Amino acid sequence: MKKIIISILTILTIIISVYFFLKHEENNSYEQKGNKMVMQIYEFKKNHNKLPNSISDFKADTEMGEGPYYEKLDDSTFIVFFNIGFDDKIIFNSNYKKWE
């Protein structure tokens, strides 16, 4: 009985570890794609002294339905984000200069 419990706990630990590893890798992938857009936005701002009004103002590599998406919040603040599932988002906010 003790061996069965240890085996089940070991298998559960492996499954949970693999899940979190894959989730971490997925988030890194989103951030890498999003960082390309963030750099394009900063480059646009450097060249035009203003933020782009929309994604159509600069050449962005986006995948339909997945993102990244760009939103100008005001003259100095923007976000780049991915919609993941129904309610989950990964967001870069230019005020904080980090992904959340």
Rank of each mutant, 00 (worst) to 15 (best):
M1L: 13
M1C: 14
K2E: 06
K2S: 06
K2L: 05
K3D: 14
K3G: 11
I4H: 14
I4R: 15
I5K: 11
I5T: 14
I5A: 14
I5N: 15
I6S: 09
S7K: 11
I8P: 04
L9E: 13
T10E: 14
T10Q: 09
I11A: 14
T13W: 04
T13M: 06
T13V: 07
I14N: 10
I14G: 11
I15T: 12
I15R: 05
I16F: 15
I16V: 15
F20E: 04
F20P: 00
L22F: 11
L22H: 12
K23L: 09
E25Q: 15
E25V: 15
E25K: 14
N27W: 05
N28S: 07
N28W: 07
S29T: 10
S29Q: 11
S29F: 13
E31Y: 10
Q32L: 07
Q32S: 10
K33W: 02
G34F: 06
N35F: 11
K36Y: 05
K36Q: 03
K36A: 05
M37W: 02
M37F: 02
M37Y: 01
V38H: 05
V38Y: 00
M39L: 11
Y42T: 11
Y42K: 08
E43A: 11
E43P: 03
F44V: 08
F44D: 01
K46G: 03
N47F: 15
N47Q: 11
H48T: 09
K50C: 09
P52K: 01
P52N: 02
N53F: 06
I55F: 10
S56Q: 11
S56M: 04
D57Y: 08
D57L: 06
D57I: 06
F58T: 04
K59G: 10
K59E: 14
A60W: 05
D61I: 08
D61C: 12
D61Y: 11
E63L: 00
E63T: 01
M64Y: 04
M64H: 06
M64N: 02
G65L: 02
G65H: 02
E66T: 09
E66H: 10
E66G: 09
G67W: 00
P68R: 01
Y69F: 14
Y70P: 00
K72Q: 14
D74T: 00
S76L: 04
S76K: 03
F78S: 00
F78V: 01
F78G: 00
I79M: 05
I79P: 00
I79C: 05
F82I: 07
N83W: 00
N83S: 06
N83A: 05
N83K: 02
I84V: 13
F86L: 10
F86E: 12
D87T: 14
D88Y: 07
I90D: 04
I90P: 00
I90N: 02
I90Y: 03
I90T: 10
I91T: 06
I91W: 01
S94N: 03
S94D: 04
N95C: 04
Y96F: 12
Y96C: 13
Y96H: 15
K97F: 09
W99S: 03
W99Q: 07
W99D: 09
E100F: 07
E100Y: 15
